[in-house]
């Protein structure tokens, strides 16, 4: 029975994706894309990957959706490309080729589940995915924080003022509509609570720094859109300290682990859990802030008097 459900879910996701790709109006395409993102989250839930489902919905479709909606505003509809038939043929070929490749995967699926399960207790973490992210492959996570920071530097590098002074462009002209202020006042506290829970539960249950960071970023954006909070200044030193807290906090933990446990990005024996927790808090704060700033765009330079 569940096979039918999974097949339907898979078709639904593919359908939403096709809608997003073939839509003529940019805004329609982005909205279809956001729907596709949520459906994809459903697929991930079915694949016994709750962490990934959370990430996909929060970052993959939620915040990406906001970013893409801002991009789609005011874009003229693009005339469909001339060689659509050829492109369709190629796409079908790609899909079939991939399907063949996937079906050709070896039957006793090779897996690292056993190794991960064996090495997990040493880290004091319950959630294997968080274990892999923060303990076994901490280098990937460190690099990913640098990627986030670099994406922000890349966005800010597009600012007209090379010294990155001032606040980003306002999200929309005029005052924020009243209902969104109401929504923000209601949702933001709940969201922050959920984010905090996700962070805390991440050690042993689905959740973790990424998901809570994304949720907190969503709440921040909601507050900004509702005009409840002022747009942050790019050259505010405290803001930049928080930005650096994530990557360089993990880096510092890495060096600390090197000093105590003899290997870079290892964790001091016996103190894994507290150190990981502190690092996770730092990472969550910087993820949330980075995501907000990336969505808001580059600083618009000093306010003209």
């Amino acid at each position: 029975m569940s096979l039918v459900f999974d097949a339907l879910a898979g078709l639904l996701v593919a359908g939403a994706a096709l809608a997003a790709v073939t839509a003529a109006a940019p805004r329609a395409a982005v909205i279809a894309f956001m729907g596709y993102g949520v459906l994809l989250g459903l697929a991930w839930a079915r694949l016994a990957a709750p962490d990934v489902a959370l990430t996909e919905i929060a970052i993959g479709s939620g915040i990406s959706g906001i970013v893409l909606l801002r991009a789609a505003a005011g874009l003229p509809a693009v005339p469909p490309a001339a060689n659509r038939a050829l492109a369709a043929a190629i796409s079908v070929a790609v899909a079939l080729g991939l399907a063949a490749l996937v079906l050709a995967l070896p039957e006793p699926a090779p897996s690292r589940a056993a190794d991960a399960a064996a090495a997990l207790p040493a880290t004091g973490l319950g959630n294997p995915v968080t274990g892999v992210l923060l303990a076994f492959r901490a280098l990937d996570t460190l690099l990913e924080k640098i990627v986030l920071l670099l994406a922000l530097v890349g966005v800010w590098a597009l600012a007209r003022d090379p010294l990155w002074r001032g606040r980003p462009e306002p999200l929309f002209a005029g005052a924020a509509p009243a209902p969104s202020a109401f929504l923000a006042r209601v949702l933001v506290p709940i969201g922050v609570l959920v984010g905090a829970y996700l962070l805390w539960a991440g050690a042993d249950a689905p959740g973790g720094a990424f998901q809570s960071g994304a949720t907190l970023a969503a709440m921040g954006l909601l507050a900004l859109m509702a005009g409840l909070a002022p747009l942050p200044r790019a050259d505010d030193r405290r803001l930049r300290l928080v930005l650096l807290a994530g990557p360089f906090g993990l880096l510092a933990a890495g060096f600390l682990g090197w000093a105590t446990a003899g290997a870079f990005l290892a964790f001091p024996p016996g103190f894994e859990k507290p150190v990981i927790k502190i690092v996770e808090i730092a990472i969550t704060a910087s993820i949330a802030l980075t995501l907000i700033l990336v969505v808001l765009g580059p600083p618009a330079g000093e306010e003209r008097p």
């Binding site: 690292r112 190794d115 991960a116 090495a119 303990a135 076994f136 492959r137 901490a138 280098l139 990937d140 682990g257 446990a261 003899g262 290997a263 870079f264 990005l265 290892a266």
Partner: peptide, 13 residues
């Protein structure tokens, strides 16, 4: 050669 976090592949990097 260096194993990050002291973990040898395939689990570590």
């Amino acid at each position: 050669q260096y194993f990050v976090a002291g973990l040898a592949p395939p689990l570590g990097i």
